[in-house]
Amino acid sequence: MSLKEPTAIVVMGVSGSGKTSVGELLAKRLDCIFVEGDRLHPAANVAKMAEGIPLTDDDRWPWLDLVGNELAEARSRSESVVATCSSLKRAYRDRLRQASGGSLCFVFLTGDPKVLEERMGARTGHFMPASLLQSQLATLESPEGEPGVVTVDIDASLDAIVDKALDQLAKI
C-alpha cells in the first residue's frame, strides 16, 4: 500500500496486543514517521502503572493531547504518521480524531486474553505489569463499526498482521 496523501494511523489495543511492533513495521512499510505513544506518558502515569494502579480518564487526557499533538504536527508538515496509543474508549479516539486535524485511521489489534497475558508475561523492561490487563479489557470500548477503523486479530505472525492491516486500510 502506498499513501496517496498524508495519512495518520493510530495502532490501538490493550497492553500486550503488539502495538509497538505492529506500528514500527507499518510505519516502515509505509515509509513514514513512527510515534511511540508510551514514550509520551507523563512520568506520573508511568509510575502509577508500574505500581499496578490503573490510569483514570483524568490521567489519560493530557497524554492523549500529547499523542494528538504529534499527529497534528506531522500533518502540518504534510507528513504521514503511524502512532501507537491504546485508545481504549470512544471518547479517547474522538479526542485524537479532533486533534489530528483530518481523517484518522485506527488499526485495532484484538486477541484472546490468554494470548495477551502470555505476551505481557514474556516481555521485559516494560512499565506496564500484566496485572493491569484486566482493567484495560474492562475499560475497552470496541471501535468496531466506527469510521476509519480496521480490526486485526493478533494470533498471527507480525508480517501477517501488518499485511492484513495494510489490506484493510487500502479499502477505507
Rank of each mutant, 00 (worst) to 15 (best):
V67S: 06
D59R: 10
S157H: 08
L169H: 05
T56W: 11
C85D: 07
D153G: 14
L137H: 01
V150P: 09
V67N: 00
H41M: 01
Y92Q: 12
I154M: 06
N69F: 12
R93E: 10
W61I: 04
G121I: 03
A156K: 13
M1S: 14
S103W: 04
K171P: 00
A156R: 15
R60C: 06
I161A: 12
A91H: 10
P143H: 08
S142H: 09
V46I: 15
S157F: 03
I161Y: 04
D94Y: 04
V81P: 01
L116E: 03
L66N: 11
P42G: 05
E118S: 13
G148D: 12
D38I: 03
M12T: 12
P42K: 07
A91K: 15
Q168I: 05
R39T: 13
C105Q: 13
F34S: 02
R95Y: 01
V150W: 02
L55Q: 07
A83P: 04
V22Q: 09
A130N: 04
A170R: 09
R77K: 15
I33N: 06
S2Q: 13
V82Q: 04
P113D: 02
V162F: 02
T110H: 13
G18Q: 03
V10M: 05
N69E: 15
V22N: 08
K28R: 15
I161P: 02
V67C: 04
D31G: 10
S87P: 05
R93A: 11
D58R: 13
S2Y: 06
E144A: 14
D31Q: 14
S135P: 05
I33Y: 07
E146K: 07
S86Y: 00
R60H: 08
P113K: 01
E141S: 10
R90S: 10
S15D: 03
L104F: 00
W61F: 07
N45W: 08
P6N: 10
P62R: 10
K171R: 12
K171T: 11
R75S: 11
L96P: 09
L166P: 03
D59Q: 09
F127D: 02
S131V: 11
E70C: 13
A165F: 10
D65R: 15
P54S: 11
L109F: 02
D58F: 08
S86V: 06
V46F: 08
S103F: 03
E5A: 15
M49D: 01
R39D: 15
G148W: 05
G52I: 07
E118W: 02
T7R: 11
G18Y: 00
S78L: 12
P42S: 09
T84S: 13
I161W: 04
E5H: 15
V150R: 09
V107E: 03
C105T: 08
L104N: 07
G145Y: 07
E5M: 14
S157C: 06
P129M: 03
E118A: 15
G145T: 12
